[in-house]
Amino acid sequence: MMRYGLWVATWLFILVVLVAPPAMVLSEALKDGLGAALATLSDPDGQSAIWLTLRVTVVSVAINTLFGVLAAWLLACFRFRGRQALLVLLELPLSISPVVSGLVWLLLFGAQGWFGPLLERWNIHIAFAVPGIILATLFVTLPYVVRTLLPVMELQGRHAEEAAVLAGANFWQVLWHVTLPGVRGALLSGVLLTTARSLGEFGAVSVVSGHIPGETETMPLHIENLYNGYQSVAAFTMAALLGVMAMGAVLLRSAPEWIARLREKKA
């Protein structure tokens, strides 16, 4: 009896907290029909927000994947002074508000910031420009690849890597042919989590972007502007599209497990 009670309570919680919100967003987006919803996506500012979000996501995921793999390998394979401090710093973006990180970038690169006047002389714009958005997104998504890879790399050990080194392999050969094949499931998981987080980042980007329509307005920021402008159908349509993109990334994370189960059933 206890088991069924927990089962019912779990599903009720999931339906209320996880399923109902996206269902309501989709319902609001389609309340005037699919044609009206799709028409709102033809707005130039909306299309600019979509493309900017995709560009920022691609750059952020690529950089954090490369950094995450190297950092996880360093932390898994070596014990050195300051290792624990580095682990704490890597988890910092998970523990502080993204708005704080946005303010820090403004403090550093804003017009009145530490480096802002110097960059202005060279006509380099970071705050209220795309580079600032990328920096803010990099900060909030930094831990995901590292934290998903690190436990798997530690469990995998160094025996195969040491054997490859003795056989004459260089660093990149060991990483590409020995280390990564053993952790590709965790790597895929980290990459997709980073992707989903990059797509939906609002707080840090909101502070550092300047909310310039058509230039520095990502999808979350555009949704806010549409909703504040009483364009509810357009706002919920953009929100539904963003939700589908993020959920697609999360669902892909489970694809290797589903494929493995299908293979087991066939076998």
Results as ranks from 00 to 15, higher is better:
24 M>N: 05
213 P>W: 00
185 G>Q: 15
259 I>C: 12
159 H>Y: 08
168 G>C: 01
139 F>M: 04
46 G>C: 08
135 L>H: 07
83 R>Y: 12
91 E>P: 04
124 I>N: 08
197 R>S: 02
121 R>W: 11
129 A>H: 14
129 A>L: 15
4 Y>D: 08
195 T>F: 11
214 G>I: 03
238 M>A: 11
118 L>F: 11
192 L>S: 06
50 I>Y: 00
245 M>C: 12
226 L>F: 03
168 G>P: 01
151 P>S: 03
142 L>N: 02
110 G>T: 08
131 P>W: 00
23 A>I: 10
122 W>Q: 10
123 N>C: 07
222 H>N: 14
27 S>A: 09
47 Q>M: 14
174 V>Y: 02
261 R>C: 07
15 L>I: 08
252 L>N: 02
18 L>P: 11
132 G>R: 00
159 H>R: 11
101 S>D: 09
114 W>N: 03
124 I>W: 13
267 A>Y: 15
266 K>A: 13
214 G>T: 02
165 V>L: 09
34 L>F: 13
192 L>I: 02
94 L>T: 05
105 W>A: 05
12 L>A: 15
222 H>L: 13
51 W>N: 10
92 L>E: 11
130 V>M: 05
265 K>T: 13
39 A>D: 15
139 F>W: 07
100 V>E: 06
212 I>Q: 07
168 G>F: 04
225 N>I: 04
43 D>W: 08
254 S>N: 12
247 M>K: 10
153 M>I: 11
67 F>L: 15
240 A>E: 05
196 A>F: 01
7 W>S: 14
162 E>M: 13
202 F>Y: 13
162 E>Y: 13
46 G>F: 01
87 L>D: 13
248 G>W: 10
265 K>L: 14
228 N>S: 11
66 L>I: 14
147 R>H: 15
73 W>L: 14
130 V>P: 02
141 T>W: 04
200 G>M: 03
105 W>S: 05
227 Y>V: 12
243 G>T: 13
87 L>W: 10
177 H>T: 12
150 L>W: 03
54 L>T: 03
102 G>Q: 01
26 L>I: 08
52 L>F: 04
151 P>C: 03
170 N>S: 08
